[in-house]
Write a protein that binds this DNA or RNA. Structure first.
Lengths: 211, 211
DNA sequence: AATAAATGATAGTATTACTATCTCATTTAA
DNA sequence: TTAAATGAGATAGTAATACTATCATTTATT
């Protein structure tokens, strides 16, 4: 069975839909690699253009600026993750089993998913860890939020909060706990790799974040 | 009783010690205001120079670049917070009381502390919430870490991890829990103000983050 | 009073983050 | 089949950013 996974993206995230043209798909594919290699700060449209054999102006036809591109990638990732979570939790009814599976999914190393050709999910996952929070840590969060740019993130958070509520209907802070779980599943991995004294998880290839 | 609180800062954080000259103290004082007003991305040494009536080159004599200045401010904040925590937990021996007091200290609104004239702790606290994680979310974290630039953060984390261990010596992840508490005490406040659906805390003037 | 440190003034550079315009090839639609 | 629309390359230009360098002047220290 060969399926092609297509995620419907918010139109405000781009100027022209990158999924519909060759250049657009190259922008997605290679921006992921470039951001991962040099970090978001050092990433420029000019460098990206050189890598994909196009021009700076060409990339601006697809994305308003590099921050929007980062939000696009991040939104894509959260949508993809939500689908993954929904898929894996399907037909499981015990909330405690659900929660355990969920945390495994969030904390596990992501393997590249072949059903999306130009997105390398494994690398994208690492970008989210290192750069994800920069999408909302800006002076224009509220404007971006009004444009619903963070909806995929919020949807995932809601999904998790719902499972927490199922597990314990009396728990008073399911959404805060959900966002904490998501953020920490990522941040603890970052600490493990770069600031190990801030975590108890070892930077071991085989070791997974404990559940 | 009038005390002057002086925090000994790591020499690698600056080119010339800003606490020892008038211009240096102005840099600290007004960079806090500027970063808070326009965000770290929009903050430049040129704008800062204009505000304090000096020149761009003048500020470069104190800080290598704006990122180092942000790390300086952040390091200062964590040191100040560690002192505050140590002070408030002095002579308390029940670990559960300690933990509760600690979380109150981390989550409470910070009021400006008069024992430091040129640092407005209340505003600095808001900067840490919105910009703090940008200090380590870079490609050069490991180098910065080798220069011990994050020591104040790690020290605070250790202190909290120690209290957690006192409370429950069998707990296997005290450092991860400590960093989670610190990060979330800040991030949930950010969400409360800007992305309220990611939290259960309301953006109410009187309401404090629950303990 | 002599000397060193701190600051101010000015200039210059490479890079970044865009915007604009014009051409040309390819699709698509009438 | 031809005209129009679309996608993309090429080139140019601008304001701002992130610095570095030099030199003169003011202020502090001995």
């Amino acid at each position: 069975m060969e399926l092609q996974l297509q995620i419907k993206m918010n139109e405000k995230l781009f100027v022209r839909n990158p999924e519909q043209t060759e250049l657009g798909r190259k922008i997605i594919q290679f921006s992921i690699h470039l951001i991962h290699e040099n970090g978001f700060e050092a990433f420029t449209f000019k460098k990206l253009a050189e890598v994909i054999g196009s021009t700076e102006a060409g990339i601006y036809r697809y994305f308003e600026n590099k921050h929007r591109l980062l939000i696009y990638l991040t939104a894509w990732y959260w949508s993809w993750l939500e689908f993954r979570v929904t898929f894996h939790l399907n037909n499981i009814f015990d909330p405690s089993v659900k929660l355990k599976k969920l945390i495994k999914l969030l904390a596990a190393n992501v393997v590249d998913d072949d059903s999306t050709i130009y997105v390398n999910e494994s690398i994208l996952h690492q970008i989210i860890i290192a750069e994800g929070s920069k999408t909302y840590l800006t002076k224009h969060v509220s404007d971006d939020n009004k444009d619903r740019l963070f909806k995929p993130y919020k949807d995932l958070c809601s999904l998790i909060a719902g499972i927490i509520k199922e597990y314990n209907p009396d728990y008073t802070h399911p959404r805060s706990l959900a966002s904490t779980i998501i953020e920490m599943a990522h941040l603890q991995v970052f600490f493990m790799h770069h600031l190990p004294s801030l975590t108890d998880f070892g930077d071991d290839k085989d070791e997974q974040v404990a559940v």
